[in-house]
Design a protein around this nucleic acid. Structure first.
Length: 313
DNA sequence: AACCAGGTGAGGA
DNA sequence: TCCTCACATGGT
């Protein structure tokens, strides 16, 4: 057990908003403290004002790891200042001040968001948790066992039946295919971080001999992976929630044609074609700037929280 | 009991 | 390049 504290002097940071915003799926809240399975161990964090009280299962999960994972050295003020202010973004900034993008493991992020398609966040958590329990290693921390996220090798040896048993549904095939691709060394995920946004996205969407390198990864999932694990802050994932926000609050950014496509996406029937996704992506990144991903995460969280508050959850 | 959920792949006009 | 569908499953 390693214990340490971090001082967040002049660093706007809100642990709760950050971990509740749907970017990471392996954190749980108990008695005012967050428990996460990250970096091959268990990390426990509690925030009181500008102090983070931390404890972890291994020496490796120390203050340096926490700084890196929560991106505490980012120039948060500059990021916020660079994003053009309007009614929608100002509301989200004020409500969730301190919400941060975090830097996750690429492999875990990739699998988590392949699983995320056409389902909801509570269920994504469940599916990821099942995968970890069934295929991952164990770490004991404070007399409790936690399951690590399985390695490419561990998942590559799973059968479709085993994967389906985790509740993955039709996603089981995607996870199996991607696990083989990565475990075989056909691609090196570490390279994604080194490329710029455009090139890294090309790699994720690439086809080799008519076959996709990453089955199950389209534009939206690629943007999530790039934003949440590869430091590509201009990535702006466009899902049904964000489509709703764009249609309601940013119609001036789009042509009537695009607005019609957004509307069909929002109303359930019809998804965005690749070309339409690219056009919307270009427009929002041009508008919000090189930290568009931060704007996206605030807008996303605000939209989702607004819905759940109204439905009385 | 339909309907929705951080979409994507496959097949055809 | 576009539109349409199926896809498994659990929560509301």
């Amino acid at each position: 057990m390693w214990e340490f504290n971090l001082n967040l002097v002049d660093v706007p940071f809100d642990l709760g908003y950050t971990l509740e915003s749907g970017q990471a799926f392996r954190w749980a809240h108990r008695d005012g403290t967050w428990y996460g399975v990250v970096g091959g161990g268990v990390l426990k964090v509690r925030q009181e004002g500008f102090t983070l009280f931390c404890a972890s299962s291994s020496e490796h999960l120390g203050s340096r790891f926490v700084h890196d994972y929560f991106r505490l050295n980012d120039d948060f003020g500059a990021i916020m200042a660079s994003i053009p202010k309007d009614e929608a973004i100002t509301e989200a900034f004020e409500r969730y001040r301190g919400l941060r993008l975090i830097r996750q493991d690429v492999w875990e992020c990739l699998v988590s968001f392949v699983i995320s398609t056409n389902t909801n966040i509570p269920r994504i958590r469940g599916m990821v948790s099942n995968l970890c329990d069934k295929f991952g290693g164990r770490v004991n921390f404070e007399s409790l066992d936690y399951s690590l996220f399985p390695s490419p090798e561990q998942l590559a040896s799973a059968t479709i039946e085993d994967l389906s048993a985790c509740g993955l549904g039709y996603r089981a095939q995607f996870v199996r295919d991607i696990s083989w691709t990565v475990d075989s060394g056909f691609v090196n995920l570490d390279e994604l971080r080194l490329q710029d946004y455009s090139r890294a996205k090309e790699i994720l969407l690439e086809r080799v001999l008519e076959k996709k390198t990453f089955l199950g990864i389209g534009r939206k999932v690629a943007d999530c992976v790039l934003l949440f694990s590869c430091d590509k802050d201009e990535a702006f994932p466009i899902d049904v929630w964000i489509a709703r926000v764009l249609e309601e609050s940013y119609p001036h950014l789009f042509s009537a044609d695009i607005m019609a496509k957004l509307n069909s996406k929002v109303s359930g029937r019809g998804s965005l074609s690749d070309k339409t996704y690219d056009a919307i992506s270009e427009a929002v990144r041009s508008h919000f700037g090189k930290y568009a991903g931060y704007a996206q995460q605030y807008l996303f969280h605000n939209a989702r929280k607004g819905r759940s508050d109204r439905s009385g959850v």
